[in-house]
Amino acid sequence: MIQVIGLSKRFELSLSHQMKVHPFSDLSFEVPRGAFMGIAGPSGIGKSSILKCLYRTYLPTSGEIWYDSSLYGRIDLAQATERQMSHLRLHEISYVSQFLKVIPRISALDIVAERLLPRGYALSEAREASAHMLARLNIPEALWQAYPATFSGGEQQRVNLARAFVARPRLLILDEPTASLDNETKHRVLDILHEMKREGTTMIGVFHDWEVMGRVADHILDMRSLGGAKEEKQLATAEGVRL
């Protein structure tokens, strides 16, 4: 489903001195359909940067990301157009970040249901599926019409997960999805992840808790074996930060 070849990312910083940061370089791996690959390593080593390159919120410096898409066939996400990436995010690829970022003053129910509308669901059907997923993730019915901005961190993350899970994506990218969850909800999340794997969803994720990751991952990429993040002080070609 995913084949990464020679992927590299470099940030150029202009602060009190010129510096280049290389979170990872010449990274290659493959993830079969329906498999889960975990990415492990200490903070700052580049785990989240890999996920953002896959989702294309970061543009890789070099390398290829071949994805088996139902919309476009085999496509290199590193070279895909913004229009193609927008369509893939709507229809095939979901990303769970560490923080929920949504439009204010929209209910939790509709924030989750919104993910299904581009897929041809009627609003009533989307809300029904949304309610079912929120219930599975321990969000009380009394909160479904409330605004997630008023929720606790753990409740916001459950809404974040519900948005990704309800769409049943072909590719699911997870960045610390269980970090702020209680043990009961972690178990529910793992149950849903196993369920989605059986249905064929391919997953790549970063977990702070190695035990939790080990219960769902088929393979773990340990970033420490790659040498970790690198910094190089030298003259940058432009001011600011390049993503």
Rank of each mutant, 00 (worst) to 15 (best):
Met1Tyr: 06
His194Leu: 09
Ile192Arg: 01
Lys233Gln: 12
Glu239Leu: 11
Gln84Cys: 04
Ala238Thr: 13
His132Ser: 15
Ser124Arg: 13
Asp209Leu: 12
Thr150Met: 07
Leu117Pro: 05
Ala135Pro: 00
Arg89Thr: 08
Ile204Ala: 04
Arg170Met: 12
Ser86Thr: 14
Pro148Leu: 08
Ser16His: 10
Lys9Ser: 04
Leu235Asn: 05
Thr202Met: 01
Ile139Leu: 14
Glu141Lys: 14
Ala80Lys: 10
Ala131Val: 09
Ser180Gly: 11
Asp218Pro: 12
Ala149Leu: 13
Leu174Pro: 00
Gln156Arg: 15
Arg158Lys: 06
Arg215Ile: 03
Gln234Ile: 10
Ser28Thr: 13
Phe29Ile: 10
Ala142Tyr: 10
Arg105Gly: 03
Glu12Lys: 14
Glu239Asp: 13
Ser130Thr: 05
Lys9Trp: 07
Lys52Asp: 07
Leu137Tyr: 05
Leu243Arg: 09
Val102Asp: 00
Ile75Val: 10
Thr61Gly: 09
Gln3Asn: 15
Glu195Pro: 01
Lys230Asn: 04
Asp76Glu: 11
Ala78Met: 04
Leu117Gly: 00
Gln3Arg: 15
Ser86Tyr: 09
Glu231Cys: 15
Ser70Val: 08
Gly240Trp: 12
Arg163Gln: 07
Thr61Met: 00
Pro148Lys: 05
Glu176Arg: 04
Pro118Tyr: 10
Tyr67Cys: 02
Lys230Ala: 12
His22Tyr: 15
Gly240Lys: 09
Pro118Gly: 15
Lys230Asp: 04
Pro23Gly: 14
Met37Gln: 03
Ile220Leu: 05
Val241Asn: 11
Leu88Cys: 08
Ala122Pro: 06
Ser124Phe: 09
Leu235Gly: 06
Ala146His: 12
Lys20Pro: 00
Leu117Asp: 02
His187Asn: 14
Arg56Lys: 15
Gly228Arg: 01
Glu184Ser: 12
Ala149Glu: 12
Met37Glu: 03
Tyr95Cys: 02
Ala164Asn: 03
Leu117Val: 07
Ile45Cys: 11
Glu199Gly: 08
Phe99Arg: 15
Gln98Glu: 09
Leu51Gly: 02
Glu199Arg: 11
Glu184Ala: 15
Met133Pro: 01
Ser62His: 07
Ser69Asp: 05
Leu174Arg: 01
Asp191Met: 11
Ser124Leu: 13
Lys20Asn: 09
Thr57Cys: 08
Leu235Glu: 14
His91Phe: 13
Arg170Pro: 02
Gln145Ser: 15
Leu235Ala: 11
Arg56Leu: 04
Lys197Gln: 14
Met213Asn: 05
Ser49Val: 11
Val112Glu: 06
Leu13Tyr: 10
Gln18Val: 03
Ile173Phe: 12
Ile192Pro: 02
Val216Pro: 00
Arg89Leu: 07
Gly73Lys: 10
Val4Ala: 00
Arg158Asn: 05
Pro104Ser: 08
Phe207Ile: 05
Ile173Cys: 08
